[in-house]
Amino acid sequence: MKARVTIYPRPEVLDPQGKAVHQALTRVGFDGVNSVRVGKSFDIELKTRSQPLAMKQLEAMCDKLLANRVMEVYEIEILGKAGK
């Protein structure tokens, strides 16, 4: 099972990186941007073929290591079965 985990700063947390990118975009002429949040993504291949089990494992990974729940939120997207 392949999955993509995306981590973002919580909406109420000031994101200095996103702010800097937003300012840079404005500087080079993209003045239609309202806001930018910078996150990170992980493409993870799991041994299991069960989607519920995959979700459970991925949530545990996020809580234990991938995300810092004090200031980050995560989204999990199942991309399909490995090898396809």
Binding site: P9, V13, L14, D15, P16, Q17, A20, N68, V70, M71
Partner: peptide, 17 residues
């Protein structure tokens, strides 16, 4: 210590990047 949860809170990148 913050990541271990022995102390509360978290660290962001410095405001000035």
């Amino acid at each position: 210590l913050l990541e271990m949860g022995l102390l509360p809170g978290a660290m962001r990148r410095n405001l000035g990047q």
